[in-house]
C-alpha cells in the first residue's frame, strides 16, 4: 500500500475522501483511517492499494508518497 494525500474541506471524513477519490472499501486501509496532516492547508492522508492509485482521476488533486519501513536504531546489529 502507499500513502496518499488529498485536500478536503475542514473536518472531512474517510468516506468523503473515498468518494472524492472514487475508492472502494477493499482499496483503502480502513483501520488507518483519514489523518489530518496540516490543518492550515486542510491536507489529509490515507493508505490505499497501489492498484487503486492507477484508477484515481488525475483531476482529484492528490499526492502519492512512499510509506517506507521504519526500524529502531539500536542496538546496532
Amino acid at each position: 500500500m502507499v500513502l496518499l494525500t488529498v485536500r478536503l474541506p475542514s473536518r472531512a471524513t474517510l468516506r468523503q475522501a473515498m468518494r472524492r477519490l472514487g475508492l472502494s472499501d477493499e482499496e483503502v486501509d480502513l483501520g488507518y483511517g483519514l489523518v489530518l496532516i496540516d490543518p492550515g492547508q486542510d491536507l489529509y492522508a490515507l493508505r490505499v492499494t497501489e492498484a487503486a492509485v492507477a484508477r484515481i482521476d488525475p483531476q482529484a488533486d492528490y499526492g502519492l508518497y512512499a510509506d517506507p519501513k521504519i526500524e529502531p536504531y539500536g542496538p546496532p546489529a
Binding site: M1, V2, L3, R47, T49, E50, A66, D67, K69
Partner: peptide
Amino acid sequence: RPGGSAMDGLLSD
C-alpha cells in the same frame, strides 16, 4: 499494517 508490497511500511503510523 496490511499491504504486502515493497512499499508497505510503517511510516504512515
